[in-house]
Design a protein around this nucleic acid. Structure first.
Lengths: 335, 335
DNA sequence: GAATGAATTGTAAACGATTACAATAAACTT
DNA sequence: AAGTTTATTGTAATCGTTTACAATTCATTC
């Protein structure tokens, strides 16, 4: 493997000069620069990034730590992150934590060991809670979740507002017994529950204790919880889930019980997916600007890497309510 | 940041001894080992992986280069790769190429610069064709695609067989005018076309030229191509697509034209997705063992990293045909 | 008890870049 | 023309490890 020494020798200069040419080209005579570039071409020299990192104490890699890349929300965010990082000359390190605080800690440590330039992180509530006490040697941008009072860059949806609107939409369409299935590991689930509750209270309703559940953000958990709701003595007339995995499970359960959407029960959720619009009836949902979230988070991160002292920023984005068939207006009944 | 020197000082030994304790613990007295470990604990020392990489000329990072992580097939594969790598103490570098040979080259070079231990790669046909000429300084395992005659580890589906079975399934269910939409950037698309054609010929049929199309593996392209097929003077009575993106586009088009599945046209495809089983009717498809593919590829890669001289292996997996409503038996007609 | 060998530890040279500092040359000043 | 800048280049230290080799200790053997 050809090193900077070989280039220096070939060009008849010192390694310092080669380095200068390659880093910015300044402080070098044009003629020498030309000779060096020629040698670089000739030898097909490519700087060893590991050596460069060691000496300069910085890498061109950022980390992305999410619960599961298979969650369509994170799939899309990750693509945006990778695109944006790529444009700016950064590589992407991917980590799946399964909402497991231990894996989160392990990966954060790995990021430290790898000396990444920064990390985009979607933490569990648990980790988010004592986030302030964790002082990483690299900048972190939080996505999709919120972290107590820590001074940190954040990009996330206005979850309370989004859930409020989604619930209000149901209320306005005549639904009254509205159940909610919320993810139990993230602040996101909690916040969306707040919005749901607020909307109900605004109409003088209270969320029924047995109808608002916090469950693991997984399809199977969505299925199980929905089955229980449907089999209750007073089943809901509408169901709100806080992510697409829960929604998929809920839909399966509803289908399995032979119930009609929205005739027997309405279904609304968060996150646009391929299936939500292909299914009959298509699902009403709050679409998050996933690509924008990933892009913004990456831009914030790169800016902070460039200028660690800059003031932190919290970017709160609004969701877009896509009204579709799964929550069509309810025929007026006695209830 | 605490370095190995600090640990050495604290434990009253040389850095070499600390290194020995941390690497395998051999050739060190038990008592000294204990002292060193104590110092490590005390100082919360973590080895700098960048320095380690530079000296030992190897990293614990592998690269994953795919066209687009948002393709559900790759989403799932990537998760398996990350899981398996994580278990073995390796990190994952993620790259999206958009089936663009230039980006492929750029990322392969980046992997070289980053000195990754190895790469799992799903190349375009173009790159696959002159793969033999590209000699990377790291081992590569190819997934999902095949590469001419190069001696290299490969994990992929038996595409010809899978497409043959899928097409035969259609034929057996009474479909005769079977069109195919194949991805145009990969060997996979070509191979699946072969299987499709072979099945037709076995029945004494020939694929109609205007009905077998190679298109970009994107939803929009699937939509456009399907529209053209449906608007032709002799539209097909069945449509086979070679991946889930094309299938989603095809389904949209069929819906938009108000046609019934499978009454007016059957639809079958490759790759299990959330939507394929939720949609009405559910879609008949060849399910790939995506997790197994990612896992196997990673295991092959790690084995080759450990032993570069080992013989290469080609793992050809069979797809599983899931017969569902979208290809239900056709009522016998004059045709 | 000297010689031999094994086990343990330290010294110092890598790995391949960047960069502070010194050295030299060239270009201005006055 | 001597002194002062300024621009260009090289020397060598450095980043934090690993590891070849030498050195030391200690037990074993004859």
């Amino acid at each position: 493997m050809v090193s900077i020494k070989d280039v220096a020798k070939a060009a008849g200069v010192s390694t310092a000069t080669v380095s200068r040419v390659l880093s910015n080209g300044e402080h070098v005579r044009a003629e020498v620069r030309r000779r060096v570039m020629e040698a670089v071409e000739q030898l097909d020299y490519r700087p060893n990034l590991v050596a460069r990192s060691l000496r300069s104490q910085q890498t061109n890699t950022i980390g992305l730590i999410v619960s599961d890349i298979r969650n369509p929300f994170f799939t899309s965010v990750s693509r945006a992150v990778e695109d944006t990082a790529y444009e700016k000359g950064f590589g992407l390190f991917l980590c799946n934590t399964d909402e497991n605080p231990e894996k989160e800690a392990i990966y954060l440590n790995l990021m430290r060991d790898e000396n990444v330039a920064g990390v985009i992180f979607s933490p569990t509530r648990q980790t988010a809670a004592n986030f302030a006490s964790f002082n990483a040697p690299f900048p972190i941008v939080i996505v999709d979740r919120s972290v107590g009072n820590a001074e940190v860059d954040v990009v996330l949806l206005d979850n309370v507002d989004a859930a409020f609107r989604l619930t209000t939409h149901l209320l306005e369409h005549g639904y009254r017994r509205i159940a909610a299935l919320c993810g139990d590991m993230s602040t996101t689930g909690k916040e969306r529950y707040s919005g749901y509750e607020k909307a109900l209270r605004t109409c003088g309703l209270a969320p029924l204790a047995e109808q608002a559940k916090f469950v693991q953000p997984r399809t199977e958990a969505g299925y199980d919880a929905t089955m229980k709701l449907l089999d209750a003595s007073q089943p809901p007339d509408a169901l709100l889930t806080t992510n697409s995995l829960l929604a998929a499970g809920a839909l399966q359960a509803i289908r399995e019980r032979g119930l009609a959407i929205p005739g027997d029960i309405a279904l609304v959720t968060f996150d646009e997916t391929t299936w939500a619009s292909l299914v009959q009836p298509p699902i009403t949902l709050i679409a998050q600007p996933t690509y924008e979230i990933g892009q913004t988070a990456t831009e914030l991160l790169l800016k902070r890497i460039a200028d660690p002292g800059r003031p932190t920023r919290q970017v709160i984005l609004k969701g877009r309510l896509l009204e579709r068939g799964s929550s069509a207006a309810r025929r007026q009944t006695a209830g």
